[in-house]
Design a protein around this nucleic acid. Structure first.
Lengths: 201, 201
DNA sequence: ACGCGAGGTGAGCAAGCGCTTAGCCTCCGG
DNA sequence: CCGGAGGCTAAGCGCTTGCTCACCTCGCGT
């Protein structure tokens, strides 16, 4: 379930060089941050000269925008799938949190860029991405509302709890370490359990 | 209780100009990030010429280091106080989470720099700050261990839960908005309650 | 055989960066 | 009345940045 979402890298990006540049940019932005990354660094990681970048992308910011939009679309997809699934709210929430936090662990380089570099986007791109974030928030809040309405959850502050759950999952991207003791799937299981307790299910 | 910790700004910083520079740096780093902030910007916010910065600080990185260390010391102080307090583990955890998350909301500009710009520190300063983070982690884990040992909490994965709790509180700095619906104290109360549920108290 | 477009390069421009320097005020003890 | 230290600035140095441009090199349809 949802494996297609997980495995998808940037494999569908059109010319090979453009994909390598995107992958290099993700790595570099995640390591150093957007502003500390130079176009020479990105091009270098893709095995090309600095000028080659501008054949495939208009600006350095366009790279960040593509990464940011791609990541938000994946995140949205994960929650939309869990939200629309059959089964009781508790199960839908479990799946949502498990998959969402696992994605942030598994793709923590991409997720780090997606979550912590959005303020470097141009105003228009920033607004566009913010819209996606608002729908992500709405999807999760919807699941919790369903659980409360069904009498399965006991939550005092639904928007606040939804915000906290999202914040918890997103922050996985900041601390997750591949050489750490937990696999992405274990993080997903742990977090799903913690969130189950948070909503009193 | 703990108000002395909260209210403390940078009021104790020695020459007035040096304090204004620090405050300007906090604002600028929080808004734009360390690398996107120029020394001209910092000096401008303090109402001075760019050169004046170098009378009080050796480098731009020294400003980040001072901010980072100050913030981690405050965070450590908050948890140390809650950890050493009298009362059952549940009450100590409540106080720890309440105060800790409230601090991250109240001082979200400082906290944002403290939590999200540490990788821009020099290697030596980074190591020093990392030590402080490890002790902060140990303090929180200690409270949870006490609760488990006393039979008050039911937690399967203690280190994992401690990590999640810390992560949850820290991430407040990222999303907190002064014009939002919640006061820092309300965030503290909400989070203390969510964490109480997480540990099964 | 050959033109042409897509993809790539080396060199380099204008702007902005962190930081330094030379020199100017202002205050204050002797 | 003076001399020098502390606090500050205007100017600017050396370097790096994002990005451009003239040119090159292939693979391919005709």
């Amino acid at each position: 379930m949802g494996d297609a979402v997980e495995s998808a890298g940037w494999s569908d990006v059109e010319p090979d060089a453009a994909r390598r540049l995107l992958e290099g940019a993700v790595e570099a932005f995640a390591e150093r941050g957007y502003h500390a990354t130079t176009t020479r660094d990105i091009a270098g990681r893709a095995g090309m000269s600095p000028a080659a970048l501008y054949i495939h992308y208009k600006t350095k910011e366009e790279l960040l925008y593509r990464i940011s939009r791609y990541g938000h679309e994946r995140a949205h997809e994960i929650l939309a799938r869990a939200s629309a699934a059959d089964g009781p709210p508790a199960e839908r929430l479990r799946q949502a949190v498990h998959t969402f936090s696992r994605w942030h662990a598994e793709h923590h380089t991409t997720a780090r860029v997606v979550q912590y570099e959005i303020s470097s986007l141009s105003p228009e791109h920033y607004e566009e991405v913010l819209d996606l974030r608002r729908s992500i928030d709405r999807l999760l809040r919807g699941i919790i509302e369903d659980g409360v309405a069904a009498g399965d959850f006991s939550v005092d502050d639904v928007p606040g709890t939804a915000l906290a759950v999202l914040s918890l999952c997103v922050d996985v991207a900041r601390w997750f370490n591949v050489n750490g003791p937990r696999t992405p799937d274990e993080v997903g299981a742990l977090y799903a359990d913690l969130v189950r307790r948070m909503v009193g299910a």
